[in-house]
Design a protein around this nucleic acid. Sequence first.
RNA 1: GGCGCCGUGGCCGAGUGGUUAGGCGAAGGUCUGCAAAACCUUAUACGGCAGUUCGAUUCUGCUCGGCGCCUCCA
Length: 471
Amino acid sequence: MRLYNTLSKSVSEFTPLDNKVRIYSCGPTVYDHIHIGNLASFIYADTLCRALKSAGYEVEHVMNITDIDDKMIARSKEKYPDLEPTEALDKLAKEYEEVFKRDMISVGNNVDGIKFVRATESIESMQKLIAKLHADGFAYIADDGVYFSIKAYTDSGKTYGQLTPIDSSNTSQSRIQNDEYDKESVHDFALWKLKKPDEPSWDFELDGQQLAGRPGWHIECSAMSTAALGLPFDIHTGGVDLKFPHHENEIAQSTAGQEDPLMAQLFFHNEHVMVDGKKMSKSLDNFYTLEDIKAKYFDPLAFRLMVLQSHYRSQANFTWEALEAAQNRLVSIRDWSDLRHQPSAESMSDELDELFRKTRQQMSDSMANDINTPEALASLNQLVSWMFKNPVPGVEGTHTDGTLAFIDELLGINISNRPDITSEEKQLIVQREAARKSNEWDKSDALRAQLKDRGIEVRDTDNGQVWARSS
RNA sequence: GGCGCCGUGGCCGAGUGGUUAGGCGAAGGUCUGCAAAACCUUAUACGGCAGUUCGAUUCUGCUCGGCGCCUCCA
């Protein structure tokens, strides 16, 4: 499996450090519905896991749930002003964690394969890490919190800027002046923030001082990934925007005082989904969630397909037109998968068998080549159009089922479990066939109308009737 | 200002130094009891200018344009 690595800025052969691939994904902050860009990021991470599994690796996938930060606090106060801060926070987090998981499932992400870790349930490991960093001289206590010292880190011989070249000269003056925190140096960041009135907080004793407060954002991922996967682990995923400062800071926290400067051997960053060629933002009114997509009666899996139609390292462009195109493509793939249930289905020919085998191979090759999903989909479509083009109304057999399952495992578009029509419905088709043979057109049309009422459309081909679900 | 990415036919979107990506859409046709689908054909391609080369969409330089990051952010 060849993968692009942000650390080396090149594509190279990936080999897990151990017998299984350990992956950590930066997860959502659960203060509201996540937007389609977040979802796209998780779809790409999910697809990475699928590709690795398909290549024969065992995968351990961990994702954090950020349920404590500024936005969480602000929103919980706003939404539940009468509740005690910790309760309000908890309630908000539970609510949107559910919404998040529902969205994940809707777009076909393998939620069962992910170990979710909540920030608020990992406070202890974060405090331990902060205490260790402080003891080792990488953290200092300021008036409003505990900070990480970039200087101490670089003085220890490590590089701050493994992912992005950091040039302090290009940091604007305004940022320094506007900075509200009391830190020693521009890039230093908060490991722990002291409690402000009416904020949820956790007790923390450090260096003999009582520092009730809450963790900074970056420390979460360092503490949680190390606790769950060890150090270093294999792959860290996230959107490109997280390269700096988030992942850079994670690396610093995780590797300060460690011999190995590596937090993860590979960083997998996906480019953003643009909307009408621009970054999603509330001010441009191009900010969408899965709710918006469902409200327009699009299948969430059509969104998944749309995302997979572009490579994870290029900016995908979301437009309603593109989503509609993806939906049409999805329907056609589904119709193709339903061919195996056709009454006229035949057994697999050697030629077709070979074509199936070849398609699977091509798809595997594409995925192994830095997760080239557009190319894999193109291979699939060649098989699909061949089947529609050639006089094979349908095929049955384990090979078909195996291929559909293979495609689902790889792409998660859920085509292998589509149910057959009922025997009663099949009977209607048989009756219609008989009516047509005896030129009873009225009867034939009535039967077709009956089937249509059940959401099944029937069309006549040289090889008999082929049905497709109209919904 | 610093760093980086990208510009492919109506739209989306891969890829390659010489051979059809693919999807969606459009036009014409074939088929057809009807309907629908399918199939066939067609059109519109690699931002611009130079350079390297037998040959560039693919490499190099310049240029124009778009985008991202540098601050919370998938």
